[in-house]
Design a binder for these strands. Structure first.
Length: 476
RNA sequence: GGCCCCGUCGUCUAGUGGUUAGGAUAUCUGGUUCUCAUCCAGAAGAUCGCGGGUUCGAAUCCCGCCGGGGUCACCA
């Protein structure tokens, strides 16, 4: 019988979550969901110095916002808790004792300065530094104030990685790692192994930065008599220049900032999933349900991918266009210009309807809709910069506007009727749409871009259109 | 520097011995009665990192090199 799949995301609360972190979480979540397994959030808060106030909550909010809900976690007790490492200290101590009793762990008698001297000596001699070359012959009894180290068993390792395939290293990478620090907290190296075993984790999915310490983890599994889980190593997401692993230091953005800018959680998820993964078909965009159905670790690529915001824009646009107007409108509310609060809801909704197909992210709403709510200042550049209009005298344009005004005065202001009347005017004046429609559009919006003219006018409404036209006529 | 991983259009990628190296995005052009966008059509864009092999035949297998990244903490 096969074990129930249990995966985990195990961040340390040292800051926000960027797309790289989210991808690791997403893939772990997908593996669990598609197997009807369990997804766990575990906080690895064993470094008090690096801990950032409030980041645990921020992490949790990020996961929830993206819809990567976990079944067990710090705020979701399960039978394997607690899910915060700082609350599991006695567990690590117990497992450390097992290693001591088995002769596989010992107290480190050296001071940090002495250890540093070993390191520098090795560097000076151009030799790799290994603590185990200085392993004391008769270490003192561990009293908890010294670091506790693994008595390692250096040897070759070859292992399978669900993404990378076969990986191997020689004994030179195996060392006597610190298991428990002198402050009593375990290191990642030790704690995550104990926790994964105790929590029944079947798949350990993590970033490439851990690949070089994996042989040491294997060494610890053996010392502890623990069966190793399935290991899956995710390639890194690189920054836009592609010369570095994406990190907070070089401008990686908090995923919640993308949400604030108006990227949809599902779009972010689809985009991040396809950074390194595809289903082998030509499908480019995936709903969350499709990802759960189709995802597989074996189709995750081995090479790092650049994070390209332009492609994210396209994916997000795809999702926005796929939304119903009602849904899009609800999502749009926080982004509408302040003046929209004084407008009818039905008006606001029509405005959003008009820009749905030109929206890349919700944060663009204010600039795209401003003229629906406020009279923008007259900007003659819009006329002089227009290749059709700049050839005309202002008086000519004014005359066209006056005729248009007269025609629109009679309209019921449905888009159809406006279109019909303007078409008639086109024939009557023998003008090209490029001239007539342009000047009307500009005179009623004073905006460099707007949706189709008749639609825009219909939504703006008769009063607003006619008064803006009058104003423009007066100033031209 | 040692060790490890990676290397197909600018970018995300398909591709596991025989393909005109496919798709998407980005870019450019044309069309959709006006602008921006969407949509549609089209163009350009990859000596498959380089050099050797193996083979009738290599992006695909082998070796070497180069380039990029990761890691060598009482951080995770």
């Amino acid at each position: 019988m096969t074990k129930t799949v249990r995966t985990r995301f195990a961040p340390s609360p040292t800051g926000f979550l960027h797309v790289g972190g989210i991808r690791t979480a997403l893939f772990a979540w997908l593996v669990a969901r598609q197997a009807n397994g369990t997804f766990i959030l575990r906080l690895e808060d064993t470094d008090k110095k690096r801990e950032v106030e409030g980041s645990a909550e921020h992490l949790i909010e990020s996961l929830k916002t993206l819809g990567l809900e976990y079944d067990e976690g710090p705020d979701k007790p399960g039978e394997f808790g607690p899910y915060k490492q700082s609350e599991r200290l006695d567990i690590y101590r117990e497992w450390a004792q097992k290693l001591i009793d088995a002769g596989r762990a010992y107290a480190d008698p050296y001071s940090p300065a002495e250890v540093q001297a070993f390191r520098e000596e090795a560097q000076k001699n151009k030799k790799p530094y290994l603590y185990r070359n200085h392993r004391p012959e008769n270490p003192p009894v561990w009293d908890g104030t010294q670091p506790l180290r693994l008595k390692s068993d250096p040897k070759d390792y070859t292992w399978q990685d669900a993404v990378m395939g076969e990986l191997s290293t020689g004994p030179e990478v195996i060392d006597d790692l610190i298991l428990v620090k002198s402050d009593g907290y375990p290191t990642y190296n030790f704690a995550h192994i104990v926790d994964d075993a105790l929590m029944g984790i079947t798949h350990v999915i993590r970033g490439q930065e851990f690949i070089s310490s994996t042989p040491n983890f294997l060494n610890i599994y053996e010392a502890l008599g623990i069966e190793k889980p399935i290991l899956a190593t995710m390639p890194h997401i690189l920054n836009e220049n592609g010369n570095k692993k994406l990190g907070k230091r070089d401008g990686a953005k908090d995923v919640l900032d993308y949400i604030k800018d108006g990227y949809l959680p599902e779009a972010l998820v689809s985009f991040i999933a396809t950074l390194g993964w595809n289903d082998g078909t030509e499908q480019e965009v995936f709903s969350k349900d499709e990802l759960i159905e189709k995802f597989s670790l074996s189709r995750v690529g081995k090479s790092g991918a650049h994070f390209d915001e332009r492609r994210l824009n396209w994916v997000n646009g795809q999702f926005i266009r796929g939304l119903s107007l009602d849904t899009l409108y609800e999502l749009s509310k926080p982004y509408l210009p302040a003046e929209a609060a004084e407008s009818e809801e039905s008006y606001n909704k029509q405005v959003i309807g008009l820009i749905q197909e030109r929206l890349k992210y919700l944060g663009e709403i204010p600039e795209l809709t401003q003229f629906f709510y406020t009279d923008l200042p007259v900007n003659l550049d819009l006329i002089t910069g227009n290749k059709q209009l700049k050839k005309r005298e202002l008086s000519e344009l004014r005359a066209l506007l006056e005729k248009s005004q007269a025609v629109l005065e009679l309209s019921d202001f449905s888009a159809e009727d406006i279109q019909k009347r303007l078409n008639n005017l086109l024939e009557e004046t023998d003008e090209k749409p490029g001239v007539l429609f342009s000047i009307i559009r500009i005179a009623t919006t004073w905006s460099p871009a707007s949706p189709a003219l008749a639609d825009t006018l219909a939504v703006l409404g008769k009063d607003r259109v006619l008064s803006r036209m009058q104003q423009s006529i007066n100033t031209l």
